[in-house]
Design a protein around this nucleic acid. Sequence first.
RNA 1: GCCGGAGUGGCGGAACUGGCAGACGCGCUGGACUCAAAAUCCUGUGCCCGCAAGGGCGUGAGGGUUCGACUCCCUCCUCCGGCACCA
Length: 1104
Amino acid sequence: MPPPPPEPARDIPLHRYTAALASEIESRWQERWQRDDAYRAPNPGEHGFDPAQPKLFVLDMFPYPSGAGLHVGHPLGYIATDIYARYHRMCGKNVLHAMGFDAFGLPAEQYAIDTGTHPRATTEKNIGIFKKQLRRLGLGHEERRGVATTDVAFYKWTQWIFLQIYNSWYDAALNKARPIEGLIADLDSGTRPTGPQTKPWPKMDANERASHIDSHRLAYLADVDVNWCPALGTVLANEEVTTDGRSERGNHPVLKRPLRQWMMRITSYNERLLSDLEGLDWPEPIKMMQRNWIGRSEGAFVDFASGTRKVRVFTTRPDTLFGATYMVLSPEHALVDALAADKWGPTAPEAWKGRFPGAEALIAKEVSPKEMIAAYRAFASSKTDQERQADAKDKTGVFIGAYAVNPVNDERIPIFIADYVLTGYGTGAIMAVPAHDKRDFDFAKQFGLPIRDVYYPNAVLAMRFFCASATEGERRGEAWFPTLADFLGVVTSGDLKPNEFEGALSGIRAKPRNPEDDMKAKRAEKRHAHEDVPGALGQRRGTIRVSWQETLEGMGFDSFGELCEWFESKAFHAHSGEAFTGEGVAVNSGLLDNLHTHDAKQRISEHLEHKGLGKRAVQYKLRDWLFSRQRYWGEPFPIVYEEGDAKHERPIALPERLLPVTLPEIDEYKPVASDDPNAPPQPPLGRAKEWITVELDLGDGAKRYRRELNTMPQWAGSCWYYLRYLDPRNAESFVAPKVEQYWMLSEKGPADLGACGPDKASGSSVSEIDKPSGPQAPKPTFHSGGVDLYVGGAEHAVLHLLYARFWHKVLFDLGHVSTPEPFGRLFNQGYIQAPAYSDDRGVYVEATAVVEESPGRFSFEGKPVRREFGKMGKSLKNVTTPDDVCDEYGADTMRLYEMYMGPLEQSKPWNPRDIVGVHRFLQRVWRTVIDEDTGALRVSEEAPDAETLRLLSKTIESVRSDFERLSFNTAIAKLIELNNHISKSYGERPTPRPLATAIALMLAPIAPHFAEELWSRLHAGNAASIIRQPFPEADASALVESSIELPVQVQGKVRSRIVVAAEADEATIRAAALGDEKVRAFLEGKTVQKVIVVPGRMVNIVAG
RNA sequence: GCCGGAGUGGCGGAACUGGCAGACGCGCUGGACUCAAAAUCCUGUGCCCGCAAGGGCGUGAGGGUUCGACUCCCUCCUCCGGCACCA
């Protein structure tokens, strides 16, 4: 960024609102606000707390304090929440708005590895830079609540929450988490049996009991496949692995490896995480992403017998069971070895024996099924996830020499293993229905397996009926369509849409008989594409785009009769080209025949359950959460192990009194890397020799224990930081219940939540405190309480927001918080994009040094460069920092510009050229109030004229509603309009005081320093801060107009305008419209058929 | 492939529930001030025809519903985001 241009001071009026003046005003007020603790929001019990005052909790997604500092993209959301918070403060609310730091994490640790600087030093330095930058923007955060996740006093409570989770289990009967003591009590008293597969509780020894308990905990150790990077010596999150299966840092190979890791049983909550989304005021796309991530699907388990064993499959389409022609297990399925035959039977086709690279050679060597299985497993596990995805169409697998019996028709079907069946989902086994599943279809084609239709599209069935009963005349004549449509009506219970039929017909489209026909069909399609469709369907069900004749031609038939002949000749195959996965009518399915998909599902489920062959089931994609990392810069686990036998070790939770477990100092931060990929991980904490063992008395005498050496992932702190804002200094608990209830519970529904005004702001939130908690609490209508407004980027749509919801629900179940959801209203701000320029080698060049030669042509150091738009960042060399903008225009202009760029939720390009617009606006407002030459006030005590007052009231109304909706760009536009009107109306004359004060007040949330300065000057320096002045109210009486102008349309086009009395009745308006000269000219020679009068809106005259 | 979101002047965008398309800003045009420039102020600015009055066309494309469609419905195209063999 070039230095700001020197102010050409000599010709500019002395008291103009310039960057220099802005800077002076801004630092002066920032100091003053800090001195006065201007944003203090008292907690219950604190000085100044008023129980009658409504509360508002506004939250930003707190940042990771990176070394690069802020760029202009970061504060977008912060400015928005600041405006919202300031506005509501002016509406008399007790507003909590704070900013903390998500300060654990990899960059500081990586920097430590490279330089030896302690991550805490780096982190604290960066936090200092961030705080300074944020303060410079005038963000009204309450300082005392701004916590960092790395503060020992903070992560003590992160560890405490971990213990709460660890010491809990999920009681499926009550559908909530309970303390683990409850489980032990149930087992002791015998009210809860251990389960059919397990030893009874009284017969277990101490070890067995402990592991039985451990297997119920919400935090548990398990052997799981993780992304393990031997070179870095750590497991990596999926986001830290590149698309080609290497580490993002260092580009080292990453492999899947089973390791004993901490897990969180988030899957216990899948149903609640899913259904509680309904009550949240969140953007629909985010809800959708969470739904997809949780991935609920309804279906059934079905048991297939194979020899003496049963293989259970999961399917969402039990209604296609009659079409199952083979079965597939995942390569790792537990039953594969037991089921596999010693040799392939004589009837096993060669093609089944193995299809994967290297299989042919093995077949030639006549290896046994078991050898082939081993080879296939080796092949499958060597594939990265990316390769699997790339090969999705090319299916591989091996026939294991065994058969299973389809329980509904006793058919013998072959069993395969294939890696397109995943171990971790469902039962890791499927019944394959190639006719109605794309993947099964691909597999069947490649292995030469039978494909049996058990569903036909509705149209096909209609065709069957038709072919069976239509007369020769109907086939050949014009009347074919109505008859077919009637059949369709029967088949589809009458609600088939025309387009569905069109689609259905194209679904059975025959392969063109020869290329020439295909061309003919295409030409026909083009020729007729825009013609309206005559005929029965057009009249009966609306109009469709392509005529039936064309549909026929498109399928390669000249007439309907020809289609019938073809259909009857059995050349037709529903799956000629692909699997039919849509809904339709069952065929070839015995008891399901002629049922529609929905009914068939119902019927088969009842049948299976009745016969004991299967049962309805629900599956989820959501997996338990891998919760440990081999890193230094994270929260240590409050967990120790007994010294000694490492194989059977069980974790021991530290009691609360031993918290916090502080991070030890170590001399080197690097994890211990290893060339042996099978070596156990050596987390950096292992270097703290003094720390890794500890002598403790946990109730059975002093003993030495080994500490857990893993640390928690970065998500841990962000799962609950918002709760610590409420009560940041509390040493007794993570948040005092009274305080938590005050800030998190909302008595009001969603409609009232954002509302602000004297009539709506009454009523107390504290009366709510006695509300019962627990899952039995009254069902939320829409708003489930929690944070009133949470603003952040959509990149956290699933991970952070899902993890935080999970922790919150656990805390809720255990009675530590009073709302089932943490964030009642969520808003996603867009990204700020910026042009980035690359030269002919594709290397990015410094964007600030690029010049625009001519529109659309850019050059850097004389050479042409290419422009694109991307997320602002170091790598694209297109960063602008807020400090640059503050230097050049001031923080208020910066705030105003970011809000004026466009809708908050939209991504938009950073365009510095536009900043002058809002800067000029502030200059004009300044001139409305202050004389640029003398610096004196230029306001008068005279009353504003009626028209200006009306505009003022209108502006107040819309600005208020715009603020509520976070529509700041339009709010600013209204304010510009108002100011333009004032300067036009009053010109050189001084501005009436009410207008000046109103505009200052309305600007206060957006441009706080600027508004405070005007406010102060308007009151000769004797005013209390504008921060808590009441926001202007619209004057209803000023809004009344005596006459209004209405547009008059003829045939829907505006032709004239009429002025009528505001309260004019319809007849008067009608007469005025018809009498209008211009209207009469347009009605010349026509008769008026209809006059539509929309009172207060417009008039439309229909004439013909 | 599946699921979302979005396409409006030269540019960013407005029109909130089907009722005056283009608010507001940038840019550009012309003018005032100035020796001149900058800054500031005023004027105009969707496209086409027209000296003008006026007219025609216009919200990604095509159709539909309606007295009336940026807004609702259908088909298609383009861009962005998410998921990706989840049975």
